[in-house]
């Protein structure tokens, strides 16, 4: 049942009680008072719910920060720094793998052709697999940006409910997408066109 349905049901139930109690003395003021009372209760529950969401978002951020390597010496003040640390750790690991693969590649050229072909094929697979560093970095960026947007929205809503600020809604201007608007980063495989799909787009007009 939706919140508005619950509110309507509560209103009808309490209205029946007041009507039975006051009979013909029931006034418009009684109904107005009942409505304000229920609306207040409703807003309090909404406020409590949003407050819980804000708390959960904060704890998610702390949980994300906890397992980071080499970060035990201080408190991480900013989610972007956490992200940078994850990406940097992956980049360092990738470069170490690439260093080794390149060294092996140079040594292999002195081996006989059969063996070197097999080893070079495996080294190619290592280079291909190292794509993960770029992709994972972009995926982490997407997740953290979304988390920060949600947090901002929840905090604005909380502030509004506390009467601290008023959120102004402005009509959105209709404009052509900028380059930044087009940036989505990697999508989940099931939601995104494959290389074959892209090739078909290119083959079309």
């Amino acid at each position: 049942m939706s919140i508005s349905h619950k509110l309507a049901r509560q209103f009808v139930e309490k209205f029946e009680l007041i009507k039975n109690e006051k009979g013909s003395d029931l006034s418009i003021g009684d109904i107005d008072g009942l409505f304000k009372h229920l609306k207040g209760e409703h807003e309090e529950k909404l406020f409590e719910g949003i407050h819980n969401i804000a708390g959960k978002l904060s704890s998610i951020k702390i949980e994300v920060a906890d397992p980071l390597p080499n970060m035990s010496e201080g408190i991480i003040p900013d989610t972007n720094m956490e992200l940078d640390a994850v990406v940097k750790a992956a980049e360092d690991a990738t470069n170490t793998i690439l260093d080794s693969a390149e060294k092996i590649q140079n040594i292999v050229t002195n081996l006989d052709e059969d063996k070197s072909t097999i080893i070079l094929e495996e080294i190619t697979k290592i280079f291909e697999a190292c794509n993960f560093q770029d992709i994972s970095g972009q995926r982490i960026n997407n997740v953290v940006n979304t988390l920060m947007e949600i947090e901002t929205s929840v905090n604005e809503l909380l502030a509004e409910l506390e009467g601290k600020v008023t959120i102004e809604t402005k009509a959105k201007e209709v404009k052509a997408p900028s380059d930044d608007d087009l940036m989505n980063g990697p999508q989940l495989e099931e939601n995104t066109p494959s290389q074959d799909d892209i090739d078909k787009l290119f083959a079309g007009s």
Binding site: E128, D134, L182, N184, G185, P186, P193, Q195, L201
Partner: peptide, 25 residues
């Protein structure tokens, strides 16, 4: 890694010769 159809169409209209999706081999 930008694989939305809109992106591909815009790149194609801008004159790209081909489009490789990350991760690639």
């Amino acid at each position: 890694a930008e694989t939305k159809v809109d992106n591909v169409v815009i790149a194609k209209q801008a004159g790209v010769n081909n489009y490789i999706v990350k991760p690639f081999n």
